[in-house]
Design a protein around this nucleic acid. Structure first.
Lengths: 138, 138
DNA sequence: AATAAGAATGAGAACTCTTCTCATTTTCGT
DNA sequence: ACGAAAATGAGAAGAGTTCTCATTCTTATT
C-alpha cells in the first residue's frame, strides 16, 4: 500500500485510510455510498468501523481526494477525484450512472451566475432517465 | 378558503390540506421545508401535525401542485408549482434562492440524454455561489 | 528500536429528517 | 343527518449520518 497520496493530502497514513483509499482506487464501481464502502471492506475481511468510513470519506472530500454527490434517494455517494469535472446522468430504473461533460452548459452556468450577481462556487447537474438497457428489458 | 384546487387535483378538501395550500400560496417565501411549513402553521395558531405536513406535501407533489427539491443540506424543500419549469441558483452564505431558465441548457440536456441512450425523465440543476449582498457584507 | 504525545479508531449512543402505525376524527355522497 | 371510507395526529420507528469517549495507533524524537 502506498501512503504517499495520503501524506500529500495532509493526512496521516493510518490503516483504515489506506484500506479505504485502496478500495476506492481498485473498485470497478465508481460511485459508492459510505455503506457500500463499509460492506465491501467487511466482505474482504477488513475490520473498519462504519463511523470511520464516514469520517474518512469526509476527510477525503475536504482534501480533494474524493467528490461527494447528492443523488436522489437521500444518501451521499462518493467518487474518486479524477481531475476533470463532469456531471452525471443516472438511470432511475437500475441505478446505472454515466458521466458527461458539456462545455456549453458550463459556460451558460457561469453566465447565469454572473447575471444574477453571484460569485459561483459550485454547481450540480443530474439528468435522470431510463437507460438503454432498461428501455429494452421492460 | 377555496377547495376547488384540491378537488381538481383529486384530493379531498380536508382542513389540513386547505391550510397548507393556503399557506404556500400566501407566503412570500417560495421555498420551504416541511418543518418550515409546520412551524409557520403552528405560529399562526393552526393545529396541524408534522406527519400530516409531510404526508400532504408528498401528496401535493404527486398531484403536481408542488415541486420537491433536494438542495444541499439533506432536507427536502417544496415550492408551489408555477407552470413553468425553472432551475435554481442559491447562496451558500445566506440561503437565498433565485430562479432561472436557460433554453440552451435545456436543449443540451436533451441532446446528452439522447446521445447516452437515455429516455430522459427529469433533471436537476443547482448553481451554488455567494450572492451580491453577501459579497458586499463580508 | 523504545517512548511519549497527540491523533485516529471503533462501538454504540444520539441526532436529524422522514415515514409508519393505528386509534380517533373528518369528509362527503346519499 | 348518517355511515363508509378516508384523513389526521401522536408517537414509535427507520434510514442515514454524526458524535462521544475510552482505547489503540502513528510518528517524531531519543
Amino acid at each position: 500500500m502506498d501512503s504517499s497520496e495520503l501524506k500529500r493530502a495532509g493526512l496521516k497514513a493510518t490503516l483504515p485510510r489506506l484500506k479505504i483509499l485502496e478500495f476506492l482506487e481498485t473498485s470497478k464501481v465508481r460511485h459508492m455510498s459510505a455503506e457500500d464502502v463499509y460492506k465491501a471492506l467487511l466482505e474482504s475481511g477488513e475490520e473498519v468501523g462504519l463511523a470511520t468510513v464516514y469520517r474518512v470519506l469526509t476527510q477525503f472530500e475536504a482534501a480533494g481526494l474524493v467528490v461527494r454527490h447528492h443523488f436522489e434517494g437521500g444518501q451521499s455517494v462518493f467518487e474518486l477525484e479524477q481531475g476533470k469535472h463532469h456531471d452525471h446522468i443516472l438511470c432511475v430504473r437500475c441505478g446505472r450512472v454515466d458521466e458527461f461533460v458539456d462545455e456549453t452548459i458550463e459556460e451558460r452556468q457561469k453566465k447565469i451566475a454572473k447575471e444574477k450577481g453571484y460569485a459561483m462556487t459550485d454547481h450540480s447537474l443530474y439528468i435522470y432517465g431510463v437507460c438503454g438497457d432498461c428501455q429494452k428489458n421492460g
